[in-house]
Design a binder for these strands. Structure first.
Lengths: 204, 204
DNA sequence: TAGATTGTTAATCGATTAACAATC
DNA sequence: TAGATTGTTAATCGATTAACAATC
């Protein structure tokens, strides 16, 4: 399923999607790349190029049918393909992610959680059961997730990553401030919240 | 304080920093750009160029003194300049961020929180007081933050952003899936957690 | 038809990589 | 000195923007 879209374009698709979904009403039945560009503060050719990857066809003079465009982006991003995910690390952040509804918009469901704190194991958080990290392998067999979210301390992240990859997880979203190493073919993305705030501060 | 470092290089500095801090011991007194590059899976010239922005001087044949390099990156990123931040939106994510210790590494301290839920107003979360959103202006006068974290629902994010900017906040880290508009000179960065997971899924 | 907008091709811009001189 | 590594200049690569033909 590897496509020839630049990653940077791929990253912008959710931005377009959010904007398009935020609109409604008859006056927004059609939308032009120019209007999107103005709203999001980017170039209109860039918008058209990005949208072209989703194979949605705009019509000269009128623009894109908003609902069709939404559908095309969602299809392209795989929002309609249901995917299971597991979460490792039920700390403050993990807890928040388990309760976060936003993943459903993209077709992902966090089905199980794992932690090594005996006080947490066996409990439920936002309706999801928390298992022991040792059961990670078994859990992955049980719910067959393609994705995993790592929200453990930095020191534990690589070993968790190894377990996940070994068990067959193909994509990992990592919140620990470490660069995870995984075999080729496994997609890893990192979100370092503190670093993001620091970057803002140093741009002022 | 606007410097001529490309934003993409700036984004990598915390990655180097985390890696360098993860090392210890006498055998890691010196480190070369090549070693960093291998560890992080990037080009060594890129590493040297990025590090050059922090004005840290490497020595031919030996490399960089690890502790000096850490100090130079931290200085460059402004980790030593203490900055106050406020958080708006004490939901699951906001709560997690209030309890997160990682911001301190970069010299930022979340000092106050704001929410519009009467049940939360007046409480403390991780030792930080929660005020009413209406008091945002007064709160900003009180603690003089340069930074703010927005963790409110998408529908409320823009109006919160407007309030923050009006009150003089210069940088905003936004977790709501909306593109915030702010006057020029205000730095806004967005973290869309769900979108990040979707991007991973669509890269598989 | 005229005008607005798309989609594409060519030009530009910026970031990465390659080559290499400097140096400890 | 020889060798390893830095820092910089030139070449390459990829992404954005500009120009423009196609079309509704």
């Amino acid at each position: 399923m590897t496509r020839d879209i630049p990653e940077i374009s791929l990253q912008r698709l959710p931005v377009y999607l959010n904007y398009l979904k935020s609109l409604s009403g008859d006056e927004n039945k059609y939308i032009s790349s120019g209007a999107i560009a103005v709203a999001l503060g980017m170039g209109e050719v860039l918008v058209r190029k990005d949208l072209a990857y989703t194979s949605s066809a705009g019509r000269p003079k009128v623009g894109y049918v908003r609902t069709e465009l939404i559908a095309a982006i969602e299809e392209y991003l795989g929002c309609n393909a249901k995917k299971n995910a597991v979460l490792v690390g039920v700390g403050g952040l993990g807890r928040a992610l388990l309760g976060y509804g936003g993943f459903a918009n993209y077709g992902t469901d966090i089905v199980e959680a794992f932690d090594n704190d005996p006080a947490k194991i066996g409990t439920q958080v936002s309706g999801k059961k928390v298992y022991a990290v040792e059961e990670l392998g078994a859990g992955i067999v049980r719910c067959n997730p393609t994705l995993a979210i790592v929200a453990v301390p930095a020191a534990a992240a690589q070993s968790v990553c190894d377990m996940l990859v070994k068990a067959g997880v193909k994509g990992i979203l990592n919140f620990a401030p470490v660069q995870l190493k995984a075999e080729q073919g496994v997609v890893v993305r990192n979100i370092d919240v503190a670093a993001n705030l620091a970057i803002i501060a140093s741009m002022l």
